Amino acid sequence: MSKLSDQDIEKKLLQFPDWDYYDNAIHGEFEFENFKDCFSAMSRIAFECEALNHHPDWSNTYNILTISLSTHDANGVTNKDFKLAQAIEDIVEPDEE
């Protein structure tokens, strides 16, 4: 998978308003009601990561989940990162029906 240009990344980020691009990765931060909800989301995200064989740099402090996505093999951001970012978005902010 090839690394995206800065311009392509910025264009794709228009679809991800909760994400930023810096330090050669895309970054998202998500706040939950409590630690349990945060950890539950992390567990669901972990299954998506395994399915995509793509693993984030992430951490949580109580109810805040911080995620950085970069494709290490490409030394930068690729479409694979945006695919995982979309899966994460679907988990942490499901569409209201």
Rank of each mutant, 00 (worst) to 15 (best):
Y62N: 04
Q86S: 12
E93F: 08
T71S: 13
C38Q: 05
D6W: 02
F82V: 03
D20P: 00
S5A: 04
T61H: 11
F39D: 10
F47A: 13
N24K: 12
D37K: 15
G76D: 09
G76S: 07
C38M: 07
F16W: 08
H55G: 00
I91Q: 04
I88T: 00
S2E: 14
S40L: 11
P17Y: 03
C49V: 07
I26N: 04
C49Y: 03
Q7M: 10
L14C: 08
I64W: 08
K80Q: 14
D37E: 15
M1H: 13
I9Y: 05
D6C: 06
S68D: 12
L65T: 06
D6G: 10
D90P: 01
N63Q: 10
N53S: 06
F39I: 13
H55C: 01
H54Y: 00
T71I: 05
S2K: 14
I64N: 13
D81K: 01
D6L: 08
G76M: 10
P17C: 01
E31L: 10
D18E: 14
I91P: 01
S40M: 12
F39H: 09
E10A: 14
K3G: 05
F47K: 13
A85W: 05
D23E: 15
R44L: 12
L13W: 08
F82Q: 02
F39L: 15
L69K: 01
G76F: 09
L14A: 14
M1F: 08
I9K: 03
D6T: 13
G76K: 11
E89K: 11
F35Y: 11
A41N: 05
T78A: 02
N63A: 05
Y22A: 14
G28T: 08
V92C: 00
N79V: 05
A46Q: 08
E33G: 15
E97D: 15
H72W: 10
Y62A: 01
K80R: 13
K11T: 15
F16Q: 04
R44K: 14
F82S: 02
D20V: 12
L52D: 06
E50R: 14
L65C: 07
H72N: 07
K80M: 07
H54K: 00
N79D: 15
D20N: 13
D20R: 13
C49L: 08
D20Y: 05
P17S: 01
S5D: 04
E31G: 06
I67A: 01
A46F: 03
S5V: 03
D18G: 12
K12Y: 09
E96S: 15
Y21K: 04
L52V: 02
Y62C: 01
A46L: 06
D6N: 15
I91L: 05
V92Q: 01
T71W: 03
A85Q: 07
D18S: 13
Y22S: 14
A85P: 06
D90N: 15
V92K: 00
F47C: 07
C49H: 06
I91V: 11
I88M: 00
S2R: 14
L4E: 09
Q86I: 05
T66R: 15
Q7E: 15
L69A: 02
S5F: 04
E97Y: 09
L13E: 06
F30M: 07
V77E: 00
E29F: 04
I88C: 00
L84E: 09
